[in-house]
Every structure is written in C-alpha cells, then in structure tokens.
Simulated scan of single mutants.
Amino acid sequence: MEIQSLDLREQRCPMALLLAKRACALLEHGQPIALYVTDAGALRDIPRYLQQHGFVVEHQQSDGTTVLKVTKL
C-alpha cells in the first residue's frame, strides 16, 4: 500500500496548517500520510497541533525539505 502524501512546500502558515489538519482528519486509525514542508512556521505548528490531537509525527530531512510522516492513532 502506498503512503498518501501532501505537498505543502509552496504553502506558508497558517494555510499549511489548515491543509494539513484537513488531510489528517480524513485518515483512518493507523493510516500514515507524508507531509512535505519547508516553511519554518509550519514546521513548528503542524507537529505541535497534530501531536496534541492524537497523531504520531516523525521528521525526516530531504534536500532542504522536511518530510513529516504522520500516523493517526
């Protein structure tokens, strides 16, 4: 099964956070999504919000982009 992804590299906070929240709200329990983020505000706000709302967030760095692997618990 392929992991869903959402490219937020062109988005700045708060739009990046809003789009991430919408995408993650549609996940089933245990389902992952990869979020591609470059904005400093989004890198701070997205993981904080998602962790407070029952998601596991892992960070990976790749070519100047941070990949947030988000899984719904």
Rank of each mutant, 00 (worst) to 15 (best):
L18K: 08
Q4S: 14
L18A: 08
A23I: 11
L8M: 12
D39V: 03
D7Y: 00
A34I: 05
L18S: 13
E10M: 04
R44G: 03
M15V: 06
Q4K: 15
H53S: 02
L26K: 11
L19P: 05
S5F: 05
L35G: 08
D39I: 03
E10W: 00
R48T: 15
R9I: 13
Q4W: 06
R9P: 10
E10G: 08
D45C: 03
G54C: 14
I33K: 06
E2H: 03
Q51N: 03
D45Y: 12
F55M: 11
L43G: 06
R12Q: 13
L17R: 08
L50S: 02
Q4R: 13
I3C: 14
R12V: 15
R48E: 14
I33Y: 05
K21Q: 12
I46Q: 07
H53F: 04
A23G: 09
P14M: 08
R22V: 14
P14E: 11
E10A: 14
C24I: 04
G41K: 05
D45W: 11
R22F: 06
A20S: 12
I46W: 01
Q52K: 01
Q31Y: 02
G41L: 04
P32R: 01
E28H: 04
E2K: 12
R22M: 08
D45V: 09
A40K: 11
R12C: 06
L19V: 03
L19E: 09
I46T: 11
Q51K: 15
G54R: 03
C13M: 07
L35I: 02
T38V: 14
F55H: 08
P14W: 07
R48I: 13
P47Y: 02
E2Q: 12
R22H: 06
E28F: 02
A42Y: 01
Y36H: 13
T38M: 12
I46N: 03
Q51Y: 00
Q4F: 09
Y36M: 13
T38E: 14
